[in-house]
């Protein structure tokens, strides 16, 4: 259901004939962040913990929403502009649950998984992206603020 890969993400999906609504989210590497030109992204992760925490997230989504099929694949390593970093797939009987399940998974993935990315810039030295506002809240799992995380 969840997979980490250092290869190009395989978006092949099986068809569940009960599903009338399928929502797919693709997170891509874009060529800028705020006012800086970005040339590539480097993802690093704590693999053992990513797998454990991601499986928790997928199981939570299964309990919260009436889903037939859920998949999430996150890529690590060095990615070029336009390449896919994360892929989420939710198949449900209707669209509403599919949208909600997909949204839940990508939000939790970004908030909880120990994955880090280093941006390489057109001008200037590369830098690890860090949302300090998330860190301020220590080990609480609930989201304590809403703002766009730069992905």
């Amino acid at each position: 259901m969840f997979e980490l890969t250092s290869e190009k993400i395989n978006t092949e999906k099986s068809i569940d004939e009960r599903a009338g609504g399928v929502v797919v989210f693709e997170g891509l590497v874009r060529n800028h962040n705020l006012d800086k030109g970005v040339t590539s992204l480097e993802y690093q992760c704590y693999e053992a913990m990513v797998i454990k925490e991601a499986n928790l997230i997928m199981n939570e989504a299964k309990e919260k929403f009436a889903v037939y099929d859920l998949k999430c694949i996150h890529r690590v390593g060095h990615l070029a502009i336009g390449e896919m970093a994360v892929w989420v797939y939710a198949a449900c009987v209707h669209r509403q649950e599919a949208f909600e399940a997909c949204q839940y998974i990508i939000d939790e993935v970004k908030f909880r998984l120990p994955i880090w990315k280093k941006e390489h810039y057109v001008d200037g030295p590369s830098d690890w992206i860090a949302c300090h506002r998330c860190g301020e809240y220590g080990n609480k799992k609930e989201k304590s603020h809403t703002h766009e995380h730069r992905a």
Binding site: H74, V86, F111, C131, G138, N139, A151
Partner: peptide, 25 residues
């Protein structure tokens, strides 16, 4: 491999990771 607390007592052979702000996705 589990989120924990800074005040949790450490034990011999524990594996500890200080997790910088994450940025997956």
């Amino acid at each position: 491999e589990d989120y924990s607390e800074f005040q949790t007592e450490l034990k011999e052979m524990d594996t500890i990771v200080f997790i910088p702000p994450v940025a997956g996705g």
